[in-house]
């Protein structure tokens, strides 16, 4: 039998998980990836909050409706000539009474390369199982819960919103390009059509998966060495205790409990 045994019910475990989410804070990453036919460089940050905890033997903490809050900024550039055709302003000749006939040359418009930055923030909920893990790291025992599988993330609504945001951002940027006016609607539509929902999902999915893959919350920390006062006498000196072994499990009796068991030595 262990020297020390501590138990937490599901309410207490929920508080421990929420503290772990707060402790994790905001995590960020950046890279580049495909956005439909375009290459996009991106930066993203995420934090986690909420969710209800259910304990399952032998070592599973199931978190339902955990909220993933994320901010995503990405930008992609492309040659506008790939979306709308280049064209030329025609030669214009005017006979001016006091000068004579004056003709302008043909002026050809080569569409520029356009850079479109997008910033998008949203949140989504997911449910997943986390496995308990106790590790001695330096002079501390760390109790973690680590996600078991990558959960299914419902990103379709976000993908649709991002695609719409791309259309709006593209129109706002393109409108300043000389001579694009008559092509503006076609160009904005062409960009969103080229990317499509699948293109946004193809970028967003792996980014969010990156944040939940291997997701770990630290739910408790314990110093390996700490001092206690014996309860035999008030004048007895305090004693240094070492936690030699620590385990975290879920046990079911009349209710499901998170159990921490420690073996100690003086």
């Amino acid at each position: 039998m262990s020297d020390i045994l501590a138990a937490a019910d599901e309410n207490a475990a929920t508080k421990m998980v929420h503290a772990g989410q707060t402790s994790l804070g905001t995590v960020s990453a950046s890279d580049s990836g495909s956005l439909g036919p375009f290459n996009a460089s991106w930066g993203a940050s995420a934090s986690f909050s909420g969710g209800t905890v259910a304990l399952r033997e032998p070592d599973i903490i199931r978190i339902a409706n955990c909220t993933l809050n994320y901010n995503l900024n990405f930008n992609f550039s492309f040659d506008l000539s790939d979306i709308i055709p280049d064209f030329c302003l025609p030669r214009i000749c005017i006979r001016i009474p006091f000068i004579g006939r004056v003709c302008t040359p043909r002026i050809c418009i080569d569409w520029p390369t356009v850079n479109i930055p997008i910033n998008y923030s949203d949140s989504l909920q997911f449910s997943s199982d986390f496995r308990l893990r106790a590790n001695l790291v330096g002079s501390e025992w760390i109790i973690d819960i680590e996600i078991v599988d990558i959960p299914l993330l419902q990103i379709s609504p976000a993908a649709a919103a991002i695609l719409a945001a791309i259309g709006v951002a593209a129109a706002a940027i393109l409108v300043a390009i000389p001579f694009i006016g008559p092509f503006l609607a076609i160009a904005a539509l062409g960009i969103t059509a080229a990317i499509g929902i699948a293109g946004v999902t193809g970028l967003l999915g792996p980014i969010l998966a990156l944040f939940v893959s291997g997701l770990t919350f630290t739910i408790h920390k314990l110093d390996r060495q700490f001092e206690i006062l014996p309860n035999t006498s008030a004048i007895d000196p305090q004693v240094a205790i070492f936690v030699d072994a620590l385990s975290a499990t879920v046990q079911s009796s009349d209710e499901d409990e998170l159990i921490l068991e420690a073996d100690i030595s003086a």
Binding site: F87, L89, I92, I94, F183, A185
Partner: peptide
């Protein structure tokens, strides 16, 4: 003013208007 050209026909019409003499 910018016409809104959503199809080939309106694009052609617009392109043909570009040689108008404005003196």
């Amino acid at each position: 003013k910018s016409p809104r050209c959503l199809d080939k026909k309106s694009q052609t019409k617009w392109l043909r208007s570009l040689d108008k003499q404005n003196l």
